[in-house]
Simulated assay, not measured.
Amino acid sequence: MVNKKVLFVLVLVLALSSLLAACGKKETTSSPAPSTETAATPAASTEATAAPSTDPVASLSGKKIALLIQLSLGTFSAQYIDGVKEQVEKLGGTVQVFTAENDMAKMASNLDAAINQKFDGILIDHGTTAALEPGAKIALEKKIPIVSFDSELSLPDITALEQGDQKMAEQTLTQLGKDIGGKGSIVKIWVAGFAPMERRQIAYKAFIDSNPDIKEIAAFGAATNNTALDTQAQMEAILKKYPKKGDITAVWAAWDEFAKGAARAIQQAGRDEIKVYGIDLSDEDLQMIQDPKSPWIASAAVDPKDIGRVQVRFLYQKLHGDETPAKVVLDPIFVSRDQLPTTQVSTVDLGQHVKGWGGSEQGYTDWLKQLEQLSAKK
């Protein structure tokens, strides 16, 4: 009887032990709930890490930009480069300038160097299709975006900037025609082989064709490492060839370096009856136009710093993945001496006297402005 009671107790203990063991397993299996929350934390963290890739600062700050220049000459080029550097730095990037000194083989080599050094984006100033197209195709294949300025280079994925060259030529030629009363003898200073020059020539030919009483008596021009000085020497020779007052009514110069050289030659010769009309405008040019003794009295231009700024904005749009136009035409402004005060002004404050000058908003998106603000805080 006692043995049966003992046996009964042992069976009961074993049953209770099994039950407790089962309960223990249930508590253990229910514990993964917290671990599921813990697992969710890395997922959220991964999502949080991925999010900044869409943030302009995370994706675009610190970009390395290459600026390839065919010929850096005079204050116009200096101010253009300043505009590029200013805008890139505001966006948190850095710029390296490669100057070819008018050597197309060197410019092509500079493009190859920019690709091999893995710059994030490339800006091109002037340059020919023959020299640049092979390298540009490689850059585009490697997903390095390109924005050009006044270049012959033309490929589907490149955004090309130009100054509205025909309009600039029309503005200066129209004023020249009015000032000389629609008749006279003029000298043209121009050079072939540059895309902007070719566009300006279209307007010049139309002007000559529609003004039969205005005659071109001389034409010359060459882009050299000392363009203004060489132009001055050539203009001095033209003045000797036409020594009498009235032989030359006016000079039309298709580039500010040409206008500077011609104006100096005319002023030194005392031929104050001859007036000069130019294209492009820098601080140095503006000083000459404001000088009442200078024969250079008017020019049409885009603020060179604005050109650099706008070019950079469209490059960053490409880096951001935005759709950009194939061509961007910058609006030129006509500037004449009679618009200006007697006190010296610079291109920085020229907008106070000439409506529309400087401060272009072209290519300025809201996210670019945001990127500038965020980069400024770093």
Score class of each variant (00 low, 15 high):
K85D: 09
P295A: 12
A51L: 14
L155G: 05
D283Y: 09
V6D: 12
V329P: 07
F207G: 06
D150V: 02
Y242D: 04
A250R: 01
R337S: 12
F207P: 05
A78H: 07
K4E: 13
D82G: 15
D366C: 01
D157N: 13
S360N: 06
G193D: 08
A195T: 13
E323W: 09
K106R: 15
V95G: 07
L19Y: 13
K90A: 13
A228S: 15
V88H: 06
A195D: 11
G321R: 05
A203H: 02
K305V: 09
S151Q: 03
V328L: 12
D247G: 13
P196G: 09
G363Y: 08
S72R: 13
A265W: 03
G62D: 05
A259G: 10
E89I: 12
Q234T: 10
K25G: 09
N3T: 11
D213W: 09
L153A: 04
T46V: 11
S282C: 08
G278P: 01
K355G: 15
Q171K: 02
V84Q: 05
G246H: 07
A136D: 11
K205W: 05
L123K: 06
K369C: 00
K378P: 09
L161T: 03
E86N: 14
W190F: 00
Q171L: 11
S294Q: 10
D179W: 05
A33I: 09
L132N: 06
Q232I: 01
L12N: 06
G24C: 12
T342L: 12
G246T: 06
P32S: 03
A233F: 04
V88A: 15
A48S: 13
V9I: 15
I186N: 02
G359A: 09
A131W: 08
M235C: 13
L371H: 05
W367T: 11
Y277G: 00
S154P: 09
S299H: 05
H320K: 00
E323K: 14
N225A: 14
M197T: 00
S148V: 07
G351L: 10
I279K: 00
A114Y: 01
L68N: 05
I297K: 14
V348Q: 12
S299D: 14
M104H: 10
G246D: 05
A254H: 04
A300T: 02
R199Q: 14
L368W: 03
K143M: 02
M104Y: 09
A39F: 08
I333L: 10
Q267H: 08
